[in-house]
Structure formats: structure tokens, C-alpha cells
Design a protein around this nucleic acid. Structure first.
Lengths: 153, 153
DNA sequence: CCGAATTAGTTTCAGATGTAACTATTATGC
DNA sequence: GCATAATAGTTACATCTGAAACTAATTCGG
């Protein structure tokens, strides 16, 4: 059984490698929609969530896209100012408000989705179909395990 | 040949999944050293780079850890204020300054490295040895490909 | 019912970050 | 040599982000 290496080689250190990979992918994608559509990453994620699951409350959105309520609130404020999202206060519980894309929001969403999927497809070309399935399964396992570790401390 | 799906399922969308995984891992690790040692993520990365490769100039650090020079400058300023990093201006080229950990910095580094490696080891327990090798290789390929795509536009 | 505790969401403040402008120093071209 | 360009690093400004305080509405316990 090999001892744990005592040297930390940043370039081989898993948390660091994941961070770099996620950052470059996220930035590359952002470059594709930020210019034409003027959205931040969080705004786009809110739109993506609403495009698929609307209507959602702000809390629902936060759960879907793993974003705290402050971030959601700010993203929604920006999207509403631009008329991309509509809010309707729940009559039964006036603390809640259900959110959905406006017609304009749906139009923009429909234009961005193919761009995003196309980028994903190009990225996946680095892997064979089998490697892709394997990678997806391994990231799933890592994610679940990372969540469990965080709970356990 | 299947057509590209027209629906964007955020929870299966690779850029999004990578982002979530990297975020939870980075936060979990940060929780382990931020409390006891009061370092930001960028400060810790600078220390990790200097702990392994010192002396380095600020530019060298930035290249090693993929961080722009402004971020490095700020992290180094904070680390120097706390006496964790020492700077020596290069005599031959007085624009440059070589950085290295101070004795205090080395002591802190030596205490954090095992914590970081232990977290990584626990995280990797989600995978078998072979899966781990496979995952590392696939992330490498994805990273290189993502870089190439960014160049190409 | 009524006050305390919860919940949804927003605002505030302080810290972090990116871009661009700036200083200081060195290299280059004529 | 000297003006110009390039390089190392810092500062300034505007934006973004997270934590905590706050408002408004609802639920719960007695």
C-alpha cells in the first residue's frame, strides 16, 4: 500500500484540475452568448431552468441550478428589467411568486440553446462515445461523493 | 446518427455539471483551510505554487496556476502583509521580483499540504484505481480540447 | 385568535474580481 | 544614443458575490 505522497503537485491535484477545466469551459461558453445576448452566467442559468421547467418560484430555481436565493433574486431582477422573465404573485401565498420566460425570453432561449448544445457537442468530440459515457458516470459518482463528504465534514 | 437533442437539460449539460462539481470540491477544500489559516483560494494557490517551485516571479506564479497578474499581485500583497511570503527585487532586471515562502509561510504550507492531500484521497475513494486513472486521462483530454476550441473560436 | 417562529424574497455592506489605465524599468529600431 | 515599444507589476474603477440583516407573509403553539 503506497503512502500518500507528501508533495502537493498542483497540476495533478484533482480539486485544482477540476477548477481549471470548469473555468475554461464556462468561460468559453459564456463568450458565445454574452456578446450577442448580454447575459451573465447566472442569468443564463436561470433562463435555462425556466425554459425547461417553468413556472418555478425563485426558490425552485435556486434548487434546480444550485444557486443561493440572493443570486437568483439578482439575476431575476436583471431579467425582468429586460422583459425576459415575468413574475406572478401567488394568490394563495403572497410570499411566493411564480416565474416564467416572457415571449421575448422564450425567443432568446430558443436562440441560445442550439449554441450551447453545439458547444457541448464540440467539446465532447475530445472523447469517444464510450469514453463520454464513462466520463459522465465518473463525474456523477464524484459529485455524489463530494456532496456526501461535505455533509460528513 | 442521432440528431442533436433540441432540449437543453441543464442537469445533464456538461459545462454545467463540471461547474457544479468543481464548485463543491473547491468549497469543501476551502472550508478545511480557510478557518484555521485564513487564506483565500487564490492565496492558497499562490502558496502552493511557491511551496513547490520557489523562487518564482509573480508572472511565473500566474502561469503556473492560470491566474492573471492582477490576481497574483493582490494575493501576494495579502500574503506579504501576513509575513508568509518574501519578495526580493532582481538586481539585473529591477522590474522583476522573485517570490518565496518565508519560514512562517513554509510552516503553514507544511500544515496545509497533508490536509489537502487527505481531502483529495477521500474524494478519490469514489473511484477504483483504474477508474481514477481513466478519469484523470479523460479530464486531461477534455482540458486540452477545450483550450484548442477556445483558440479556434 | 395572538405572539413567536418560519419561510420567501430583497437590500445592504464588505470583500473579491476583471478590465483598463498607470508607473517603472528594460529592450528594440533607427 | 534616443525615441518607441514592450514587459513587470500596481492601482483605480466598476461590477460581482456572499453573508447577514431586513421586510413581508404565513404557519404554528398554546
Amino acid at each position: 500500500m503506497p503512502a500518500v505522497s507528501q508533495a502537493l503537485e498542483l497540476e495533478n491535484f484533482l480539486p485544482y484540475r477540476l477548477s481549471i477545466l470548469a473555468q475554461i469551459v464556462s468561460e468559453s461558453l459564456h463568450d458565445l452568448y454574452a456578446g450577442p445576448f448580454g447575459l451573465t452566467v447566472t442569468q443564463w442559468r436561470v433562463m435555462a431552468a425556466l425554459g425547461r421547467f417553468a413556472p418555478l418560484t425563485a426558490s425552485d430555481v435556486g434548487q434546480r441550478i444550485v444557486m443561493d436565493k440572493v443570486a437568483v433574486s439578482r439575476a431575476v431582477a436583471g431579467l425582468m428589467q429586460r422583459g425576459l422573465v415575468e413574475r406572478a404573485t401567488d394568490r394563495a401565498d403572497r410570499r411566493r411568486a411564480s416565474l416564467r420566460l416572457s415571449a421575448r425570453g422564450r425567443a432568446m432561449h430558443a436562440r441560445i440553446v442550439p449554441i450551447a448544445l453545439s458547444y457541448e457537442a464540440r467539446l465532447y468530440r475530445a472523447l469517444s462515445a464510450e469514453e463520454r459515457r464513462s466520463f459522465d458516470a465518473l463525474t456523477d459518482r464524484l459529485l455524489e461523493h463530494a456532496k456526501a463528504l461535505r455533509q460528513a465534514g
